[in-house]
Design a protein around this nucleic acid. Structure first.
Lengths: 142, 142
DNA sequence: TCCATTCCTTTCATTTATAAAGTCAAAGCG
DNA sequence: CGCTTTGACTTTATAAATGAAAGGAATGGA
């Protein structure tokens, strides 16, 4: 972990850990956890943000409680060499698409998706099959 | 989206959207965006947390800048019916393991991992192959 | 040695969050 | 129908947190 040692010390790592557990922690509390003053801690956090190490503050959402009962991984194999129609279709399906990884291996892309039901998943797959071949895996649990 | 309509109104969805973009937003600013007072907004957020819809506040970290240059998906097929040795091995490799999904389909698990180098990935795979067969895909980009 | 830089501390003014009290509308009950 | 309760809000007061500013210490370079 070469480049990492140079930029991040133990305090930075501790800050990242605490923020990953609760990004709304008060700077006062965070400073107590890392044994610095609040302004020093705040400056550290700002530096992590400016450096792009912290890309953003966000929330973990329970997808089931949001009504997305189906979590799926779809391996995508292109039918031809034109990716654009597939990528356009994925854009139209943004509410369902969590990730669209470009991957090495047997497939070209790996899609992580969420759907409210199997019916919606099926509709999505019908649309998808116009552009690509795919292999479906349903995520049973994390 | 049946259960969802009953629980979440447009304001809740807006709150979730804003918090997903910046979970450190001040309650004052969030309240202005959703046109409620600060205490009312705070109560709404608290309710989303209590209901388990918001599971936590966290950060998005740039893994490359953290020194993890290799992002991999590994499909895991059990050699036998004993999952425990595999699961134990995964526990020992916690710093590298982002997700361990149990999935339907050809494989049993889908592992999402990060590694600082191909060397470390290789070591991981050597260990893994004691327990399971696997198929490796490297994530080239998101 | 001196100066600049970096990283910290303390203090204080300002802002934000929370607690408390009150209001209003809708639902439920007699 | 009238009254009470409940839920969701507002405003105000109080407590807590944040950010700006000033100062200090340690380190590295000339």
């Amino acid at each position: 972990m070469k480049g990492m040692e140079k930029i991040l010390d133990q305090t930075d790592l501790r800050i990242l850990d605490e923020l990953s557990k609760n990004s709304r922690i008060t700077m006062k509390e965070l400073s107590e956890k890392v044994h610095l003053s609040s302004p020093a801690t705040s400056a550290r956090v700002e530096k992590l943000v400016t450096a792009g190490i912290i890309e953003g503050y966000t929330i973990k959402v329970n997808q089931l409680k949001m009504g997305y009962f189906v979590h799926a991984m779809i391996s995508v194999i292109m039918k031809g060499s034109h990716h654009e129609p597939y990528l356009s279709y994925i854009k139209t399906q943004a509410p369902f698409v969590l990730q669209n990884y470009k991957i090495s291996g047997d497939s070209c892309y790996l899609l992580e998706c969420k759907f409210p039901s199997n019916e919606v998943l099926d509709e999505f797959l019908v649309g998808l099959s116009e552009f690509v071949n795919y292999k479906l895996s349903i995520i049973i649990s994390k």
